[in-house]
Simulated assay, not measured.
Amino acid sequence: MTRPPGKERFRLEGTSGRARAAVLSLARGEIRTPCFMPVGTLGTVKSLTPGELREAGVEVLLGNAYHLYLRPGTRVLTELGGLHRFMGWDGPILTDSGGFQVFSLARINEIDDEGVTFRSHLDGSLHRLTPELSMDIQAAIGADIRMAFDECPPGEASREAVRTAVERSLAWLERCQARHETHSGRDGRGGLLFPIVQGASFGDLRLESIERTLAMGDWPGIGIGGLSVGEEKEVTHRVLDAIEPSLPRDRPRYLMGVGYPDDLVEAVRRGVDMFDCVAPTRNGRNGTAFTAQGRFNIKGARFATDPAPLDETCDCACCARYSRAYLRHLFVSGELLGLRLLSLHNVRFLIRLTSLARAAILRGEYNRWADDWLATYRRGIPRAGIQEEGEDAEC
């Protein structure tokens, strides 16, 4: 396999412990890491325009191959010049492979070594998704970074099931690479392909997955899948601690489906560079705000006459212009502006959080900064097992 240019596009600028600050240079722009990628499932980050995302500091978006395949479909995307032109976003786009959604959303699915047969969650229609089709979908989307099609077992899966998922994901990766080269060439000029390592919470399977994945090619980046799927946070931390020494230092590391503030800070501490999650916008639509003092739901009666902004440390348009009292009024009145403003705030909060983390890394004091930040943030989080109304527990 010829070495793709993606490796040379990743420039490490500083480290602090295992935390890293870097720049990933792509044709459509630079991505400064650590970075958070808002999720644009159907070609839109729900309720927010591309212009608003740019103003919030977003550098890269995530698109969803499964959802875009079902609607509007690859024919529409191809005819209209790909997702960038279709949605009016000129920056980089990363697409997931569709595998996680097939396993989690499809009404019925049957997995075999060739692919997955599933029924659409929209209308029950029957579809067949293979590694080759996943690459075709992501090529039609025109993604700058494309993820390999993998099998993601649930957090409670047995060792036998996880072993099967590791083997199948490796076999599918070889097929993804072959198909990807027909679209992008062996040098990856039309988009970079990231493999995904699996293994759930089994450290030896994780390490084997990494070793065998790296033996298959000089990949431009590595996806870490199968975490944040129901396991305890301590398990996630343990897995990241175990695999970090085996991950290439000169490639970006992408932890899939993680986006709550404290989880992000802890993962950066363990050497992760890139993140995505629906958490900021999903929680925002339900009235839950991320703040430096923890999460809270703005619909609470205690905010009815509160003149303060959501977060006095935040520089977003929501915090600059509106009070907690007004935002509560919007939510209890069913006004759409409320969910838009909280979604915008939560996205900006995570973008700013990654910028603060990057600055601390470049100063060489990440662990101290992270400990101080987490101590303040966790004091404000509702006690374990107690959720405020409307708050989402997981991504």
Rank of each mutant, 00 (worst) to 15 (best):
W219C: 01
P34V: 06
G294I: 08
T78M: 10
F349N: 00
S134G: 11
R32C: 09
F290C: 01
D263Y: 06
G73F: 10
A65S: 15
L62E: 06
L24D: 01
D150N: 11
P131K: 11
R363H: 08
G385K: 10
N109Q: 15
I386T: 13
R328T: 02
A200W: 01
V265P: 00
M147G: 00
G115C: 07
R179Q: 12
L207A: 08
D371C: 02
A178V: 14
F10W: 05
G230P: 07
G99W: 08
V45G: 00
L337A: 07
R348C: 07
R3V: 15
D204N: 09
R11K: 13
P153S: 14
R71W: 14
W369K: 08
G221Y: 02
R348Q: 08
A359S: 13
E174D: 15
C152V: 14
V197P: 01
T44M: 09
R179H: 10
L310Q: 00
D273V: 01
W89G: 01
R340C: 03
F149H: 05
V229R: 05
P154Y: 12
E59S: 10
L62M: 11
P4H: 10
R119L: 11
V272H: 00
R302G: 07
E266Q: 11
L207S: 06
E167I: 11
L129Q: 07
R186D: 14
H127E: 10
R85N: 15
S201K: 13
R179I: 04
Q293N: 14
S355F: 02
R146V: 14
L350N: 03
H67M: 07
L207F: 03
L53H: 02
W373R: 11
L83Q: 06
G300Q: 03
Y326E: 06
E208D: 13
R189Q: 14
L192M: 12
L129E: 06
C314D: 02
D315R: 13
I93N: 00
E52G: 05
F349M: 04
G142K: 07
T33G: 02
K299W: 03
V197E: 00
G287A: 05
Q293T: 13
R282P: 08
A292G: 02
D112P: 09
C176H: 06
H127S: 13
G14Q: 01
A384S: 12
M256F: 10
R54D: 15
V332T: 14
R363T: 02
R251N: 09
P382R: 07
V60Y: 00
H180P: 04
C314T: 06
R340W: 06
G190S: 05
E234G: 15
I361A: 00
L240N: 04
D187Y: 04
L61T: 02
H180D: 13
D204R: 05
E391H: 11
T305K: 13
R9H: 11
P245H: 07
R18C: 06
M216I: 07
R363S: 12
D371Q: 14
W369F: 14
R168F: 08
G257T: 09
I210V: 15
L48E: 02
L122S: 10
S158P: 08
F202R: 10
T49Y: 03
A360T: 09
T305I: 05
I111T: 15
A65Q: 08
G57H: 07
E156D: 15
Y66E: 11
C152A: 12
L48Q: 03
G88C: 09
T288V: 06
L341V: 04
F10I: 06
